[in-house]
Design a protein around this nucleic acid. Structure first.
Length: 485
DNA sequence: ATGTCC
């Protein structure tokens, strides 16, 4: 794809579309990526990120991360910080899968110890952690209990024995965001969500057994702080979100916003998918409080899955999770909007930062980073495709240019439908097994859709994120087992 | 992403 003539190269990894690109832009749009990535990006990204630049209250830049691709309203990879007084909140800037994110847990087991048990381990994980469209969990809770869960997040799980106190410390927002109000949630959303705690879901959601090989540790000192201390150490990484619950919350409020946006607030947007309400309006506040329930549902979901993972490891290896060193490195989301303080032209401002397919990457010393990591910056977990490996990065002070945000994954280059025509799930499974990755999937077509070849090269994305200074590599994890939704 | 269209 030829780059638009008007695009300005700010550096090797930062590209700017000025306000003259399109009428109504309030700020320039900046896309992060090497020239190779920028050229491979779908054209819709230019259109979508410059649409975002027209939204009321947007501050400094509309940003797109190196793994950007077209999404609902906002591109996936989009970051937009809105003034909390004058600005809007937009479900399209958060995503349907509210608080979708990554969780990483280490073990002290080595590849040689795990390899003889790998199939049993993956098969048991596949059995214990329901995956696929419409899957329901083992946790039986009433609708009322579920309303408590969406207000309490992972705290509810730990209180009920599904996890450890220190898991909470290693979770963004300590596993429970303040201000979640279940009164702002529809019965329909409760219906869809109350039996989905502890389920993986479908699409690009997965759970992976990975190995941290010594040659793929980029920063040994930081890796040690994150708990990577043994050669060929085994880790478990997984990716899931708020399932049908978050989806319904987004759907409910998109409808509300479409009704009041123009008539009540006089806001017109260039794309209906950018439906918004003033952040300070009753509708905006209701969505924010409901969206926070989605955030907490997602933390609880990942907490319960972690508990199941520990149970399965105990079953397979006959040791306690503590004995196997199954400590959480971190849980970090990539579909949220949160009020944060950021420095704008030397002044601290309260901003509502939308991150849609973009990971928070707070740097050293920042408020909100767990004590253990405070001096070095927060862990950033970026899942690659199921065939290529995943990265652990760290937030940097250079993150200030993107409101401390970075990429979240590889980013698709091929549509799901084309991927299904290109690969067959059964063949892919055999090929992956021959390459040392044992994969179990809820759906053959779902497996084909997630083929590594349908994604950008994760290494290109990470290279761009590091070169631009918005995060720094710590380690690359190589998959050996995968449970795919 | 999603009871992949109420």
């Amino acid at each position: 794809m030829p780059l638009p003539n008007i695009i300005e190269r700010i550096s090797d990894t930062v590209w700017e579309l000025p306000v003259s690109y399109k009428p109504g832009m309030r700020v320039p749009a900046r896309i992060y990526g090497t020239e190779k990535l920028i050229q491979a990006m779908d054209e819709a990204v230019y259109d979508q990120i410059t649409n975002v630049a027209t939204l009321p209250g947007i501050t400094k830049y509309a940003l797109c991360m190196p793994d950007g691709h077209s999404g609902y309203g906002f591109p996936i990879g989009g970051v937009a910080a809105m003034d909390t007084e004058e600005g809007i909140i937009s479900p399209g800037g958060i995503g349907f899968d509210i608080n979708c994110g990554m969780r990483l847990v280490m073990t002290n087991l080595t590849y040689n110890e795990v390899k003889p048990h790998l199939k049993e381990l993956v098969d048991k994980l596949y059995k214990k952690i329901p995956a696929g469209v419409g899957s329901t969990g083992f946790l039986k809770v009433s609708r009322d209990e579920f309303r408590q869960i969406v207000e309490q997040g992972a705290h509810w799980c730990v209180k009920h024995g599904y996890g450890w106190e220190e898991d909470l410390e290693m979770t963004e927002e300590s596993g429970c965001i303040e201000g979640a109000d279940s009164k702002k949630i529809s019965e329909k959303a409760i219906d869809r969500g109350y039996n989905q705690i502890g389920t993986l879901g479908s699409g690009n959601h997965y759970l992976e057994i990975q190995v941290a090989r010594r040659e793929y540790i980029m920063d040994e000192k930081l890796a040690r702080v994150f708990g990577i201390t043994v050669p060929d150490q085994i880790a478990v990484m997984f990716h899931t979100g708020s399932r049908g619950f978050g989806h319904q919350v987004a759907t409910d409020y998109l409808q509300v916003f479409l009704k009041v946006m123009q008539s009540k607030y006089g806001i017109s947007v260039l794309d209906r998918e950018l439906a918004s309400a003033p952040f300070n309006s009753p509708e905006g506040k209701d969505y924010y409080a409901a969206m926070k329930c989605g955030i907490n549902m997602s933390f609880a979901n990942r907490q319960l899955i972690l508990h199941r993972i520990r149970e399965v490891f105990s079953d397979v290896f006959g040791r306690s999770p503590q004995d196997m060193g199954m400590y959480m490195v971190y849980d970090v989301a990539h579909n949220t909007a949160k009020v944060e303080n950021h420095s704008i032209n030397g002044q601290t401002k309260k901003l509502l930062v939308h991150r849609k397919g973009a990971t928070r990457a707070f740097g050293p010393g920042m408020e909100g980073v767990p004590k253990r990591y405070k001096e070095i910056g927060q862990p950033v977990i970026i899942g690659g495709s199921m065939e290529t490996g995943s990265y652990l990065l760290v937030g940097t002070s250079g993150g200030s240019q993107t409101f401390f945000s970075t990429a979240h994954g590889s980013g698709r280059t091929m549509s799901r439908s084309k991927a299904k025509k290109t690969w067959r799930g059964e063949t892919l499974q055999h090929e992956m097994e021959a390459r040392g990755i044992y994969v179990r999937s809820a759906s053959w077509s779902g497996l084909a859709e997630e083929a590594g070849g349908a994604y950008k090269d994760i290494n290109d994305v990470i290279e761009a994120a590091e070169l631009s200074g918005i995060s720094k590599r710590v380690a690359l994890f190589i998959p050996i087992g995968n449970v795919k939704g």
